[in-house]
Design a protein around this nucleic acid. Structure first.
Lengths: 212, 212, 212, 212
DNA sequence: CATGAATGAGCGTTCATTCAT
DNA sequence: AATGAATGAACGCTCATTCAT
């Protein structure tokens, strides 16, 4: 009956409150980091946005940079776990689903991703730990896919390396305006349509076939 | 006798010297802004890199931000003049040439572009004045191209808006790693090959045709 | 039944517990104050060393400075009571015993004394209340001793004021390295030997006598 | 005639001004460090005392600690150079002169020395670099002196180590009240008298000789 | 009563900009 | 025209103390 007993899994009420507060700070911070960049965001801004005293921040994070790292790490975990479910899209529908999923992950974390890219643009450490290590996995997956497509004669004989790069480039470029905040995120419906168009374009090209 | 008289066309020797100094400062600044971002670059850094006193800076620019604006404006002019020569690539070779040219412009100004993107990522003012106003023109051109292609039955009936976006996305995404400094710029030869592959992929898609 | 009633003499069980806790805090604090100084010791350090919550401290002391004052007052009491037993060393053995005793008091309270000196070095209040008021008594005792020695023709006619000062200086200087932690405290045996040497040197000087 | 030429030794007018300003800051700082200790002195205090802006400080010193180090290093140099002139006091007058000299050095640098001791009391680094390295040299010198005195049968057979320690202790203890600011520095005359008494006491002891 | 959490005040330090020369 | 020196404002961060539980 006591509060000690009420937490059955070792996460006491206090600990949960700490986690909630951390999350609130991280959300507010992601917002600011995304909007004006890490360097240009002050701890005063963070405190104000999270509605706490400036020094209270340091009860939850050891430094301003730790807030950034916590944000990015959390996001990284989410992305990793999302991709850990096997990706085996051999057909057109599978590809569309994959494209849709990637966009879903990015778009439901717009702020986090925007902050990530902003800092990765100037920090090699962030770039390698949180971007390249992730994109390498996707790139590797795409290369395998293309190689399989080519050897099964379904695809024209293109360089898998180059092909993978172009596919990724297309997605990255397509998502940038949303991440930057120029465009509002597409509805699930429009997202699906975009995925279909991209996949169709990649597979079929833009030219009319069989100009019989 | 005086320097006033020696320059008959308004660009006196003194003025030319000022312009040369401004340019040197801008080059050094572009380097630093690109590498570590505008916010994280100090005026001391700028002065050191340009080999002048910290206060001398203010003889040439009204503020640190003015240096950034000057850099971006100069770049914008270059890009605009590059695109002002009519772009009329109706055929495959014209498209390849266009792709090559865009990449050329970006890649011969890596530092400037990197600095531009870095700051446009956080500043709406920079974004609209120096990025969107530029991309809109390219986008508009691509839409026209696609519309023409579709109505002439050369292209499959795709949404010109979406098509233009995807084409641009592909280029942007492909150039990002070079801008960020992960990859070294491609040689003219490899650049041409890349342009050909991209255009080929866009036009023909990846699937084998005539699975007759 | 209540704790109020259980303690018939004013020192209830609770009060004893409070005193014990205060003592524990003071011991931990003396350690820290001695090692790094009062200013450089944080209340967090104190709480950690005393194994209590940071705010619990304020249940036992009104402020950080109160902890210091409590430490010094306790030490002052000990010293006073140690000296209150009459000091009447008229002969060489008595002097040696006195020297030994002073060193004993200081050395069994190294931490306290080190903290005291450290703070007295910068705080006039501490200096006068806890150092000078104590040293004056010893000084006065020594002056009497010397005066007696001189008038009984046992000592050469030296200024008692100056003599007392030099004797105290010798002891203070000799103990500093131990207080500062450069040297480990001497064993009782070595302490006695030191006392003998000092007294011998003071009484007899270093020159060979009667080289007759 | 130009300012370039006026500085004949490479120390330009500017450089001299910088050195003067540094010195002024160091003097003000020594005062404050001596009075309230290094930890308890803020950069604001320093700036106020030196009558400059708080940030101006950093044009002359890299950090608050650098100010301390500069003060102590300068003092160390003075002491070293003072002792570098050979110390060869074989007779009573030589000893008195030595004692007088040591006191002179310390007393003409009361503030510096007080700051030094205050910080050496809590910082091992300061203690070893600026105190022990200095005292070791004096101690070594005194041991040699005593050894010589003993082997020439002028001194009674005492342990040179212990003897040196006691001599130093006497001086240190005697100077402490002045350093701490309890007593004003003695006049040269009184200083000489003190030196004579100390040496006399050390050599002859306090007891009357030839109690025939 | 003990405590983790919160915080205002202030710390040492940096920086874009101005000023005196 | 060029600059070293100066600085107010603000930075990221710490700390003695208070408060809610």
């Amino acid at each position: 009956m006591s509060s000690e007993l009420s937490g059955s899994e070792g996460t006491s009420r206090r600990e949960r409150r700490v986690q909630r507060q951390r999350k609130e700070i991280m959300d507010a911070a992601a917002h600011l980091f995304a909007e004006r960049g890490y360097s240009a965001t002050t701890t005063k801004d963070l405190a104000l946005a999270a509605d706490i005293g400036e020094s209270t921040l340091y009860g939850y994070f050891a430094s301003k940079r730790e807030v950034l790292v916590a944000i990015l790490s959390e996001k990284a975990e989410q992305v990793d776990s999302a991709f850990s479910e096997g990706l085996n899209p051999a057909d057109r529908n599978g590809l569309i689903h994959l494209a849709d999923k990637i966009m879903d992950i990015v778009l439901t974390n717009v702020l986090y991703t925007r902050a990530l890219i902003g800092e990765a643009w100037v920090s090699d450490e962030i770039l390698h730990n949180y971007v390249i290590s992730r994109t390498n996995r996707i790139s590797s997956y795409l290369r395998d896919l293309i190689t399989a497509g080519v050897s099964s004669k379904m695809f024209r004989p293109i360089d898998p390396r180059l092909g993978a790069r172009i596919v990724m480039a297309t997605f990255v470029g397509a998502l940038l305006p949303v991440l930057r905040g120029i465009e509002s995120p597409p509805s699930p419906k429009r997202r699906r349509a975009l995925a279909e168009t991209v996949v169709s374009l990649l597979l079929d090209g833009v030219l009319v076939r069989n100009p019989a």
